[in-house]
């Protein structure tokens, strides 16, 4: 994909909404286009988190394993969502598995490249961090709701 097209895709994605154009151009330098087929593993727990993904279309399932009980899908992400923040948090390892449930198109952002740019330009770092913090807050809230088991299966 051309740089111009990557830039356009990023500018239209909710995660980068109203981000300064100059910063976006810096970020495009770390971006590449990726496609995952239905069923394809994107990453596994424990692997190094080299990238994060801006999802354009499709659906990605995040799974956790609990020994012999098999994997549980704890969340799915789709168009407009962002996959992963482990690239920002040492030791930069994924904490869950991710696979594409259906054909998924995304922009992969190279974590190391971005970390370097954020280190060199703290304002860019602040912008990105604020967006990621928002995301984490939303996910934390959602996780709490899931934990509360709001549809409350009554014990028989």
């Amino acid at each position: 994909m051309e740089i111009d097209t990557l830039d356009r895709v990023l500018s239209q994605h909710p995660f980068f909404q109203s981000l300064d154009e100059g910063y976006r151009k810096l970020i495009v330098g770390c971006a590449s286009n990726v496609v995952f087929q239905a069923g394809e593993i994107i990453f596994r727990e424990g692997e190094s988190a080299d990238h994060f993904y801006i999802i354009r279309h499709g659906r990605v399932a995040l799974e956790m394993h609990n020994g012999g009980k098999g994997p549980i899908i704890v969340e799915t992400l789709g168009e407009g969502d962002v996959l992963g923040w482990s690239w920002l948090v040492p030791p930069y390892h994924w904490r869950f598995d991710a696979h594409a449930v259906e054909l998924t198109r995304a922009i992969a952002l190279d974590g190391q490249c971005l970390r370097k740019k954020c280190y060199e330009d703290h304002s860019l770092g602040y912008e990105l961090l604020m967006r990621i913090v928002n995301l984490i807050a939303e996910r934390l809230h959602a996780t709490r709701m899931q934990l509360m088991d709001v549809y409350g299966n009554v014990k028989h």
């Binding site: 399932a61 098999g70 994997p71 549980i72 899908i73 799915t76």
Partner: peptide, 17 residues
């Protein structure tokens, strides 16, 4: 749904989202 096994191909997450 709040959680699912792998045979579920739909959304997982809270409805408010």
């Amino acid at each position: 749904v709040d959680a699912a096994r792998r045979d579920w191909k739909g959304n997982v997450g809270v409805v408010t989202h």
